[in-house]
């Protein structure tokens, strides 16, 4: 039996979702050789009593080492997750003593809830625009910084990455002020060039609000995508460019025929990270609009929060949380599969 089949066999006996992860696991080459070199002597040792005792010792030590992580993780992640799924079948409020099993009612209500669909759609809008803008600009910027300029690379990279280390709350408050009809600089600039700003404001107009949020999010994270992709582009072997230079290729051709295909994996990873960010989004929406006006900018995260902690419908919030969980896990599995190859 080949060593990685050994891993698969054991993992396969576990939950089926873990089989997907085990494929990922096999992509860690060091792990394969490590298992291969140890599995065989381990079995031989078992025949001798003294060696058997040592193996017991190792097992106990190993479990002592894993225990703290396992306990904390079980209490604050595994148990709450199971609990979320359970609660999604109850009518229940955090300050409401009346708990009632309602079967699939919360899910049925979900399908008929226009605000839920709006929230889901808004997550989708953020996802699409974030990918197009952040990955689009990020890739071009990275290409320019890696090959197109002679000086200032560190300066530009530092500047563009700076918003990433700020909290999404700080970015939200900052952009709320930037969009402010009175002191905001966007309206000031528009007035200077003689354009009339939107009457209801950038965050008050249901048709504009999503784009105002996306602009703030892209301001914060485009530099992040750029940095990841830049790291990938820098590892493209220089010989390729030397060869293409001999063939008389220009920089634009280099970009399309060398840089882009060679950094495909890293761009894919950055795209998935951006997508996961869009699925999880909460802070910036909460700070900028709380999901308003009139639910126009509600996303799954804010809608869960609103149901659970504002209108005391924790059971219904749990049903939305289960939907979010399913979507997040799908993207997470994709990310794990692709990024481990990079």
């Amino acid at each position: 039996m080949r060593p990685h089949e050994h891993i698969r066999e054991r993992a396969g006996a576990w939950l089926c979702v873990f089989t997907i992860f085990s494929d990922t696991l096999q992509r860690v080459p060091a792990m394969r050789t490590e298992t291969a070199s140890r599995a065989a002597p381990g079995q031989k040792e078992g025949r001798f009593r003294i060696a058997g005792q040592r193996r017991w010792r190792t097992t106990i030590d190993a479990y002592i080492l894993v225990a703290p992580a396992l306990i904390v993780f079980s209490i604050f992640v595994v148990y709450p997750l199971i609990n979320t799924v359970q609660l999604s079948f109850y009518q229940y409020g955090l300050t409401d003593p009346d708990v009632r099993f309602v079967n699939f009612d919360n899910y049925i209500r979900l399908f008929q809830d226009a605000i839920f669909w709006r929230a889901l759609r808004n997550n989708g809008i953020i996802l699409i625009f974030s990918v197009v803008i952040q990955v689009g600009i990020g890739v071009v910027l990275a290409a320019v910084l890696s090959r197109g300029i002679r000086w200032g690379k560190t300066f530009f990279r530092t500047l563009h990455f700076a918003p990433v280390v700020m909290s999404a709350v700080a970015v939200g408050v900052l952009w709320q002020l930037i969009y402010d009809p009175g002191i905001g600089i966007i309206n000031f600039l528009l007035r200077t060039v003689g354009v009339r700003p939107p009457v209801q404001g950038w965050l008050g107009d249901p048709n504009i609000v999503m784009f105002s949020i996306i602009a703030a999010a892209c301001w914060q994270y485009t530099g992040y995508v750029m940095t990841i992709v830049l790291a990938g582009m820098e590892s493209v072997p220089a010989e390729l460019y030397e060869a293409s230079g001999l063939d008389g290729a220009n920089e634009v051709q280099n970009f399309f025929y060398i840089t882009l295909p060679m950094s495909r994996n890293v761009i894919l990873a950055a795209t998935l990270i951006t997508m996961i960010g869009a699925v999880k989004v909460f802070d910036i929406v909460y700070v900028l609009t709380r999901g308003g006006p009139a639910n126009a900018s509600q996303v799954l995260g804010t809608y869960i929060y609103y149901n659970a902690f504002t209108i005391n419908q924790a059971g219904y919030a749990s049903a939305i949380a289960v939907v979010l969980l399913v979507i997040a896990v799908i993207f997470g599995v994709l990310q794990l599969r692709f990024t481990r190859q990079v």
Binding site: A11, F21, L25, A69, V78, L325, A328, G332
Partner: peptide
């Protein structure tokens, strides 16, 4: 292997899915 997979499987989970519990 199952322990490793269990511990890393949590990385994709958004905290919002567990806020109520």
């Amino acid at each position: 292997i199952p322990l490793y997979l269990l511990l890393i499987a949590g990385f994709a989970i958004p905290v919002h899915t567990t806020l109520v519990p």
